[in-house]
């Protein structure tokens, strides 16, 4: 690619999009939990769907399915 990927937040991804995690912001227990569950720098995350009312979102990463509220997903930066 001749340009850098588009930077955005995890919660801004649309259903079906995949992106690479570039940074996990935030602090404390939530940040720790997000990383423990495998959302770390360099991992590829795909948005499989959102719940019927648009939130939470279901992600596929490291071969499993993780659900996370969009508010909590804002701490993750990704690159398309």
């Amino acid at each position: 690619m001749w340009y850098d990927g588009k930077q955005m937040r995890l919660d801004e991804l649309k259903v079906g999009q995949s992106a690479t995690v570039t940074k996990v912001n935030g602090e404390g227990a939530l940040r720790r939990r997000v990383m423990d569950l495998g959302v770390t720098k360099g991992v590829v995350v795909t948005v499989r769907k959102t719940a019927p009312l648009g939130d939470p979102m279901e992600l596929i990463l490291r071969g499993y399915s993780l659900t996370v509220r969009k508010d909590d997903a804002t701490i993750v930066e990704v690159e398309l």
Partner: peptide
């Protein structure tokens, strides 16, 4: 503050 919701399916 709302407790975070992050859990596997």
């Amino acid at each position: 503050a709302q407790a975070p919701y992050i859990t596997e399916l």
